[in-house]
Each structure stands twice: as structure tokens, then as C-alpha cells.
Design a protein around this nucleic acid. Structure first.
Length: 919
RNA sequence: GGGCGGUUAGCUCAGUGGUAGAGUACCGGCUUUACACGCCGGCUGUCACAGGUUCGAAUCCUGUACCGCCCACCA
């Protein structure tokens, strides 16, 4: 085993061994515990958000597995309809061909091929992260079986009247040529104009002025609306205007939704291209005119001169023509919400098309109730508000997409426009008694990716079959995911789970934060601030990192900016921190917050932590070279102390796991390992195990304690840092001859494994104060750490004397004390630096050691600080309200503190006086 | 317009009624045989602001400011 911590030497090796040995599969006994993975896009790569989530899921999984649960972490990947299709289309474009040129069948084949090649990226990354998923159950949303589940659900929802096909306005992506659901629309404020257009009245008497942000849609206007009570326009209601350019006559109608304050108080109504206007159109039975084709170019419904123009070109021409006709009444700057597709970024167009919808209200009702009743619990609880808010205002879900990659809708049409839904064409024909003379063709559309995602918890476990897995692991225990997909995924899973299994899909939803860069910016390719988890684990040189970040950037000025920022942040690239350091960083950031800024300083700190425990283990191993002779053990105070402290640490670990506070789990283990085990306990074992007065039985007990505590630490830390703990655990076992195959299947420590020992804790606390007192003197007096010091003690109680005897060897070693003498009175020692331990006055005679002035300065500083504390303390106690109202134990504590501080001051004062005398 | 977060040391973050914390950075000292990725000691804060509740507020309440996220059809 290497003397240095080099994670690259063992991380991948252990993972391969675990996987090969089948350790990730459920044990088949114990209480079931199941987590399903949020299936990542099969063609994608894992980003920092994934790595964060996966770390949490794996930690939870490993923790429960070690506690004897029958643990299943269900893996899988998602076909990610639009995203994947776009990737492959881009690829084809680069090859000089296109989806259309290939045709549907060839294209889909091509996507499958691409999936086979690049699908491994994800799984490789998951392995590198240490994810203990049951790979034997790996699946893909478009596997034949899972596709079957999609069909089954679709058909059942249709049969229950919960899926329907309808013609209405949808969010149309003119670039991708598909409908989108409301959730896939990202609206943001953008600068634009507000045009005021003059529409002449049909009778030629006057004109109305309408305000619009989209003048080109005027060619599809079928009315003009005013508020019914608007005195300016009341007299015009029921009259008509002559729509310019189109030269159509349309009515002036009254509608309460019109805001008289906005614009001119006069609205042009375009039911075919505006969601509001569509509703107005329905209310007033207006005709719906569709003036755009799939590219959002003007179609044959408009006058010749506008046909075939892109909507924005048409806008210019319409404005131009209106101006020429003197019909522009004004143009103002205006900021409005522009809807864009979340994938293409294209400005969406409301378009009247036939689409498939899921009727959500009935499904939502159940799902709301489930959360209200606590059958699903959100962690942090607050997210349930977000969930309720959306669910209570839910709208029907448009599930059809005009894509080729995805689950094709199981609906068939005959030549008369009749639609038949069924599991396949044969079933449809049989059910509706359609002979071969009826030509049927299947719907061309595919389903929204999230449709199959919504079924994930039960589809992966074998539904609709009543499989053993479904029976055993469903409902799953916890869903761990980012809050950004509460609507997309979490809510829909709850609805579908309840609908098809009668049960919630999971009992808890743990929503973790989103990972941002160190500036708090979202990590996106376009910003060039992406961090690849692999680069943090394995390291990356600056050149490669720069290439990665600027690859495929469209705008050169952005490229140089990204390059600059990257050089500034990572002047030497990123060094390899290893998986465990990355995981510990993530768990330490798993607080209740909603974003985490990823900072290299943190991962560096956890790399050091791994190094620390590695080296501590090297020390332990070095103590285990001789085979043990003899049986009896005599535990030292230090042994009993560290066990007692470990007990508390284990309690904290369990408690924090229970509340999903992995940051607190990490903190508890970090602090115990570093500050108690390494800083003190290991140092305390040195005088016992080296030359000295310790008996063989004490040495045996100490070695046993080292082994036990280190072993427990390996187990306790294993869920967070699986690799280094495995490496150390196996080495420890080799040294002690213990039988074990892996730490990951060991029993997780319980607090009762280690006895509490208040007496030992008090004793070692006393020792620590003693040692620290002398160290402080040494440091502040500028005394060399290696110089042994004589120490005089005054005011030692019987207990102090007893401890001095029993802890003598520790004091000598840790404080480098040459001699310890008792004196009757501190005044007997002329010129000494001092430390106070309760009653005990520790004196280090300074004669010839140091200058007195420094000690005076030091004492003065202490005195000032202590006086300040006492003042604050007195102020409280002098306050009658405090004494009367505060709980007695708080008052008592404060009283004791005042006494203690008072004594301290007295002694410091005395000591200071004496030093001044010498000077 | 509605909803939800955040504001604590230079930086990244814990702390949710009782003496302000960690990592990192910083200062001083150390080749003390596990570890210089270390050890020892130290420095660092009007806990955003203003009111209020309370004996006592970083912590609870109200309001304000700033930053951020989500939802929503004002053309």
C-alpha cells in the first residue's frame, strides 16, 4: 500500500470489483429500501447537478444497505425526445445531410446507433462516481418493455376519458416544428415596440386606434375589442371596421377583459395567434384565422404580397405599408414577455393544431390529497407549497410532439378521419371490427418525453405485471432530485403512480439544491462556465479545459471572454481531487438551501481530509506489525474517552441521515476524525505504545481501540467516501487478520457499540486544557516547541494530583514538560508565565527563558478579554428581570461563570503585578 | 401581479432564543519518527437595514433595501 493518498490507484479498481461481485444488487432480505434514479438523458453527460444528486442518492443507498435494508437503487436512462433528436440532427447537418433526407425509419435507426455509442458516457461517469446502482436492472425508457408500459398507460387513460385529441392553440416551435407543453415555454422580458394602428370604420366615419406588439398578426384579426363601459368607444360597439391591408370587414366587440388603461383601450383580436384572443374569440364566436404555416411564415390566408414571408419580415412590411397608408398612429418602446422554446430558444407561436392532451384535473385532485395527507412528504417541507400552487391551477397537458424520436402515439386513423386507440393495429382492428378493406395509418406523432418519465417508479419495477420487485419496492422510499423538475416530473409521477397503482410512487421527496458556479451563475455551455465532474475527480490541464469550454461557441467575442475567465479561475487547470473528495464536498453542501456555489476551496479541503485519514491509518497500521500475544486488555482513559466521543459522533450521524442533512453528517465525521481522533487520540496513543510505563495490557487495549475506532470510521464514512474507506478497511483487515470482503457490506456502526464514559471525558478534557495552556505560553512566549519546560503547580486539588499521576506520561509528551513540581503558593515562583485550569495554577518559570515584557503583554491581553467577559456576565446578573425570568439553570450557569471569571481575573491580576515587580 | 428563497469572517458556507462557528485565505512559530495535503499558536465579524416581542434576538414578528428563483394571458 502506498504511503501517500493517491486515489487514482484504487478508486476504479474497487468499483470494478464491487460490480463484478454483485454487491450492488439487493440483498433479498431485510426491510426494503428503494430509490429510483431520475433517468439522465441517454446521449448526454453527467453535469455537476447530476453528480451532486447522485452523491446524495448513493450515500443514502450505501447507508441503508449497511444498516441491513434490502436496498435497491434502480438505474436507467431517458430517451429525451427533443434533446436527443436535436443532437443527432446537428450531427447529420455536419455530415451534409438531414433528418428529412434520411426519412423517418432511417433517422430513428440512426438515433439508436448514436445511443449505443454515446449511451456509455453516462454509465461510465456513474461508475466513476461510485454509484452503487443495481446494473442488472439497468433500463431505458424506450426499451421494448418500458415502451409497452407507455402504450398500456396511454390506452387506459384514453379509455378512461383522460386522454383526448383536440384542436386548439398550442405553443408551437417554428424551428423544431413541434408543439410544446406549457412547461417547456420559457418567458422572459424582452425589449420591443408597441405600435398604434389606425383601423378605419367600415362606414368611413372615423377610425379606431388599436395598440399591438405584433403588427404582423393584424392580417389574422377577426375583431376589435373595447371595454363595454369605456365611454370613448361605447358608441362604436356593434359597428365594424375595415381591416387595412387585408381589406376585410370585422366587428367591434365589447369584452370585459379589455383594460381601458392599457395602450389605446382598443385591442385587435387575433384568435388564431394569441391565447387571450383565442378565448375572446370563443366567447364571441369569432372566426379563427390561421395565417402562419409550420415555419411561422405567412400562408395563403393573407394577401399575395405577404405570402411566404417570415413573421418578422412580414412585420416590417406590414408596418411599412400601414405607414404608407397613413395608418400608423404611433410607435412606443415597450417591454413584453416573449415566450421561447426551452430547447430551441426560438420564439414560439401560438398555433391552431390538432394535439393530444391529458385531462389533468381529476388526476391532480388525488395527487393533491396524497400530499395533504402526508402520504408523500416533501423535504424541505416548504416545497409542498410550490407543488400545491401548480397542482391547484393545473392545465391539461399537451403530450403529442411532432418528432420522430420517442414513443409513437398508439392511435390509428382511417380514411374518414376516425381515430382508434389501441395497443397495436391488430387490437384496434379486432376491437372495432375493421377488416383489411379499411386502410389504417398510425398517428405520426410521438409522446412528450416526460410522459414515460412519469411512469418511471412503477414501469422500472415491472408494472403492469405484479412482479416481485413491484410488490417489494413500490412505493419507493425517497425520490431525490432537483427542485427544478417538481412540475415536469415529481408531480406527474405522483399523479400517474396513484392512477395506475393506487399508491404513491414514493413516501418522501428530497429536493436538493442546484449547482451553480462560484459566482452564483447557472452552469451552461453558452456561458462557458461548465465544470465536468470528471475533471474534478481526475484533473484536467488548462489547455484541455479551455478547449472544452470554448468548443462550439458561436460568438468569437464570447469565446475570448470565457477563455479569460477560465484562465483567471484555473491558472493551472484543475488538479485531480479524486471521487471521495468530490463526494464529500457535495455532501457537505447538502444543506436546506436551494443553490450551492461550487468553490474549489471546498473540494481542496476535503481532499486534505482524505489525505488526513489516509495518513492516520498509516500510523495505525504501523502499530499492528507484531502479532498480539496475550488476551487481557486494560483500557486507558484515552481509550475510554475516544470511544465515548465516537458514540456521540455516531448518534449525530444517524440523526442527520434521518433528516437528510448530509452536511451535518459530513461535519460530524470530519470533526471527530480530525479534531478528536487525529489531533488528540493518536497523539495520546504514542506515549502508551512507545517506550514508557504503559503495561502490555494497556498497549493491547490501545491497539484494539485504534483498530476499532478506525474500523468504525471506515464504515461511518463509507456512504460518503466509498473508495478511500474501502482501501483502508481492507488494509486494516489484512493487518488484523479479520475476515471481510468489503466494507460496503459491513454492518453500519450504532452508538451502542461504544460506551459513554463521562469520567474519561472529564479527565481528557482536563488534560487537553493543561496541554493547550502550556502550548499557548510556549507559542506566545516564543519558546521553541522542542525545548522541554519545567512546570510548577500551585493550588492543585486532590483530583488534580491524581490526574497528574495518571496522565503524567501524556503531559510530558504532548506538552514537552521536563519536570512538574508542586509549590504551596504561586507567589513562591518568581517570574513565571502562567495558565489557569480552574483552581489549578500552572506556572512556567521564565528565568532565563524569555523576556518579562512579553509575558506582561500576554497577561494584559488575557486580563482585558476576561474583564470584558465578566462585565457582560455581571450586567446580566445585575438585571433583576434576567434573574427573575430566565430559566434557573441559565441563571446558575451565568452565576458560576461570573465566579470563575472573577477568580481568573484575580489571579491574572496577581500574576501581572508580580511580573511588573520583576521588571 | 402572485409566490418562494437568500443577505453571518476576504471567499464558500454551518448556526434558528442563552458567551458568534467551520473550511479556505491571512499572520507568527515548528524537519515533534502518520500526515508540510502537516503540527502548534494567533488574527478576522455593527450576523443587510429599521422597528417590535423578550430578562435576553444572528435566531421570533413587522417593514425596508438589495440579490436570486418560480408562476401568471395585459395586447
Amino acid at each position: 500500500m502506498s504511503k501517500e493518498y493517491r486515489p487514482a490507484e484504487f478508486e476504479t479498481r474497487h468499483y470494478a470489483r464491487w460490480e463484478q461481485a454483485g454487491y450492488f444488487a439487493p440483498a433479498g432480505r431485510g426491510q426494503p429500501y428503494c430509490i429510483v434514479i431520475p433517468p439522465p438523458n441517454v446521449t448526454g453527460t453527467l453535469h455537476m447537478g447530476h453528480a451532486f444528486g447522485h452523491t446524495i442518492k448513493d450515500a443514502l443507498t450505501r447507508y441503508h444497505r449497511m444498516r441491513g435494508f434490502d436496498t435497491l437503487w434502480q438505474p436507467g436512462t431517458d430517451h429525451a425526445g427533443i434533446a436527443t433528436q436535436m443532437v443527432v440532427e446537428r450531427l447529420l447537418n455536419r455530415e451534409g445531410t438531414s433528418r428529412q433526407a434520411l426519412g423517418r425509419e432511417k433517422f430513428v435507426e440512426r438515433v439508436w446507433r448514436w445511443k449505443e455509442q454515446s449511451g456509455n458516457t453516462i454509465t461510465a461517469q456513474m461508475r466513476r462516481l461510485g454509484d452503487s446502482v443495481d446494473w442488472s436492472r439497468d433500463c431505458f425508457t424506450m426499451d421494448p418493455r418500458l415502451s409497452g408500459v407507455v402504450i398500456e398507460v396511454f390506452v387506459r387513460l384514453y379509455d378512461d376519458g383522460l386522454i383526448y385529441r383536440g384542436k386548439r392553440l398550442v405553443n408551437w416551435d417554428p424551428v423544431l416544428h413541434t408543439a410544446l407543453s406549457d412547461l417547456e415555454v420559457l418567458s422572459s422580458e424582452e425589449k420591443g415596440k408597441l405600435w398604434r394602428l389606425r383601423y378605419p370604420l367600415a362606414d368611413g366615419s372615423d377610425a379606431l386606434v388599436v395598440a399591438t406588439t405584433r403588427p404582423e398578426t393584424m392580417l389574422g384579426d377577426t375583431a376589435v375589442a373595447v371595454h363595454p363601459d369605456d365611454p370613448r368607444y361605447r358608441h362604436l360597439i356593434g359597428k365594424s371596421v375595415r381591416l387595412p391591408l387585408a381589406e376585410r370587414v370585422i366587428p367591434v366587440i365589447a369584452d370585459g377583459e379589455v383594460d381601458p388603461e392599457f395602450g389605446t383601450g382598443c385591442v385587435k383580436i387575433t384568435p388564431g395567434h394569441d391565447f387571450n384572443d383565442y378565448d375572446v374569440g370563443l366567447r364571441h364566436a369569432l372566426p379563427v384565422l390561421n395565417i402562419f404555416d409550420a415555419d411561422a411564415k405567412l400562408n395563403a390566408e393573407v394577401p399575395e404580397r405577404y405570402r411566404g414571408l417570415d413573421r418578422f419580415v412580414a412585420r416590417e412590411r406590414v408596418v411599412e405599408d400601414l405607414r404608407a397608408a397613413g395608418l400608423i398612429a404611433g410607435i412606443d418602446d415597450h417591454v413584453s414577455m416573449i415566450p421561447r422554446g426551452d430547447r430551441s430558444g426560438a420564439i414560439l407561436e401560438p398555433l391552431l393544431t390538432d394535439q393530444w392532451y391529458v385531462r389533468m384535473a381529476p388526476l391532480a385532485a388525488e395527487a393533491i390529497a396524497a400530499v395533504e395527507q402526508g402520504r408523500v412528504r416533501f423535504v424541505p417541507e416548504n416545497w409542498s407549497k410550490t407543488y400545491f400552487e401548480w397542482m391547484r391551477n393545473i392545465k391539461d397537458w399537451c403530450i403529442s410532439r411532432q418528432l420522430w424520436w420517442g414513443h409513437r402515439i398508439p392511435a390509428w386513423y382511417d380514411n374518414h378521419g376516425h381515430v382508434y386507440v389501441g395497443r397495436d393495429e391488430r387490437e384496434v382492428r379486432a376491437k372495432h371490427r375493421l377488416g383489411d378493406e379499411h386502410v389504417l395509418h398510425q398517428d405520426e406523432d410521438v409522446l412528450d418525453t416526460w410522459f414515460s418519465s412519469a411512469l418511471w417508479p412503477f414501469s422500472t419495477l415491472g408494472w403492469p405485471e405484479r412482479t416481485r420487485e413491484l410488490d417489494r419496492y413500490y412505493p419507493t422510499n425517497v425520490l431525490v432530485t432537483g427542485f427544478d423538475i417538481i412540475f415536469f416530473w415529481v408531480a406527474r409521477m405522483i399523479m400517474m403512480g396513484l392512477k395506475f397503482t393506487g399508491e404513491v410512487p414514493f413516501r418522501e421527496v428530497y429536493l436538493h439544491a442546484l449547482v451553480l458556479d462560484h459566482e452564483g451563475q447557472k452552469m451552461t455551455k453558452s456561458k462557458g462556465n461548465i465544470l465536468d465532474p470528471l475533471d474534478l475527480m481526475d484533473g484536467v490541464d488548462l489547455k484541455t479545459l479551455l478547449a472544452k469550454r470554448t468548443e462550439g461557441m458561436m460568438q468569437p467575442h464570447l469565446t475570448s471572454r470565457v477563455e479569460q475567465a477560465t484562465r483567471a479561475e484555473f491558472p493551472d487547470g484543475i488538479r485531480a481531487f479524486g471521487t471521495d473528495a468530490l463526494r464529500l464536498t457535495f455532501t457537505s453542501l447538502a444543506t436546506t438551501g436551494r443553490d450551492v456555489r461550487f468553490d474549489l476551496g471546498r473540494i481542496d479541503g476535503y481532499h486534505r481530509f482524505c489525505n488526513k485519514i489516509w495518513n492516520a491509518s498509516q500510523y495505525v497500521f504501523a502499530q499492528l506489525v507484531e502479532p498480539e500475544h496475550g488476551e487481557d486488555l486494560r483500557y486507558t482513559a484515552a481509550d475510554r474517552w475516544i470511544r465515548s466521543r465516537l458514540r456521540r459522533c455516531i448518534e449525530a450521524v444517524h440523526e442527520s441521515f434521518k433528516s437528510y442533512r448530509l452536511d451535518l453528517v459530513t461535519q460530524a465525521l470530519y470533526e471527530f476524525t480530525w479534531y478528536e481522533f487525529c489531533d488528540w487520540y493518536l497523539e495520546l496513543t504514542k506515549p502508551v505504545l512507545g517506550e514508557g510505563p504503559a503495561t502490555a495490557a494497556e498497549q493491547r487495549a490501545t491497539r484494539a481501540t485504534l483498530v476499532e475506532v478506525l474500523g468504525a470510521l471506515c464504515k461511518l464514512l463509507h456512504p460518503l467516501a466509498p473508495f478511500v474507506t474501502e482501501e483502508l478497511w481492507l488494509e486494516l483487515a489484512a493487518k488484523t487478520g479479520a475476515e471481510t470482503r468489503t466494507v460496503m457490506l459491513e454492518r453500519f456502526p450504532e452508538s451502542d457499540d461504544f460506551p459513554a464514559d463521562a469520567a474519561a471525558e472529564t479527565e481528557i478534557e482536563w488534560l487537553k486544557s493543561f496541554v493547550v495552556g502550556i502550548r499557548q505560553i510556549r507559542s506566545e512566549m516564543n519558546l521553541s516547541p522542542s525545548k522541554p519546560l519545567p512546570v510548577k503547580l500551585a493550588g492543585a486539588t486532590a483530583a488534580d494530583r491524581a490526574r497528574l499521576t495518571s496522565l503524567r506520561m501524556y503531559i510530558e509528551k504532548l506538552a514537552r514538560v521536563a519536570s512538574i513540581d508542586h509549590v504551596a503558593d504561586s507567589r513562591a515562583v518568581r517570574g513565571a508565565a502562567s495558565a489557569l485550569l480552574g483552581e489549578l495554577h500552572v506556572l512556567v518559570p521564565l528565568a532565563g527563558l524569555v523576556d518579562v515584557r512579553a509575558e506582561i503583554e500576554r497577561l494584559d491581553k488575557q486580563l482585558t478579554r476576561t474583564r470584558k467577559d465578566l462585565d457582560a456576565c455581571r450586567r446580566k446578573l445585575d438585571n433583576a428581570d434576567f434573574v427573575d425570568n430566565a430559566p434557573p439553570e441559565i441563571v446558575a450557569k451565568e452565576n458560576a461563570r461570573a465566579v470563575d471569571l472573577g477568580q481568573r481575573i484575580e489571579r491574572l491580576d496577581l500574576q501581572l503585578k508580580r511580573m511588573r515587580e520583576i521588571q
